[in-house]
């Protein structure tokens, strides 16, 4: 985990130098302003989002669900996971913690990939709040149909690949 912290901050440092060279310190100032604005908006939501995820994890029988989509569940499990993921509302702050519990509960790697892809693509809340109002329903229809099979495809590719043991971070407290 420490490696990924280092990578992010080295990358940020390199980009900062590039921005200063291209646009001067005003560019750097604009960048931090953008980041600060987003941080402010996220910081108000994040504690509650994480709490919600932790509460949902105790309310929904995720353990039992994850047994249904274990590594042996194959194609059937991939389809179920993609559908479950698609129905999961909320952004990354709530979805990843739930996915993690799902995986630790016994879901297989192909199934969890289908789950995360299903959530990424169908994201009910995003369609209702952002996509339909800006782009219109015919655009939404075309996009959803074009993308419908992608989560299943992603799951199947992982299923076919000779993937070894996958480790995930430990779950604290639950």
């Amino acid at each position: 985990m420490n490696t990924s912290y280092v990578i992010v901050w080295v990358f940020a440092a390199i980009l900062s130098i590039m921005v200063v060279r291209k646009k001067g310190y005003i560019g750097l100032k604009k960048s931090t302003f953008f980041a600060g604005n987003q941080a402010l908006s996220i910081s108000k939501k994040m504690p509650f989002a994480l709490l919600t995820a932790a509460f949902i994890a105790q309310l929904v029988p995720i353990d039992e669900l994850s047994q249904i989509v274990g590594p042996q569940s194959g194609f059937f499990g991939i389809i179920i996971s993609a559908l479950l993921g698609g129905l999961l509302p909320g952004g990354p702050m709530t979805s990843f913690p739930i996915a993690l519990i799902f995986f630790a509960g016994g879901a297989g790697a192909p199934q969890i990939v289908a789950f995360l892809s299903g959530w990424s693509i169908f994201a009910v809340h995003r369609v209702l709040v952002f996509e339909a109002p800006t782009m219109g329903w015919s655009f939404v229809a075309i996009r959803l149909i074009s993308c419908a099979l992608l989560p299943i495809l992603a799951g199947l590719i992982v299923h076919w690949l000779p993937v070894g043991d996958i480790t995930v971070p430990p779950i604290f407290g639950l």
Partner: peptide
């Protein structure tokens, strides 16, 4: 977040 702001430039 910082990277996001930098990329926008």
């Amino acid at each position: 977040l910082l990277i996001g702001g930098l990329v926008q430039q």
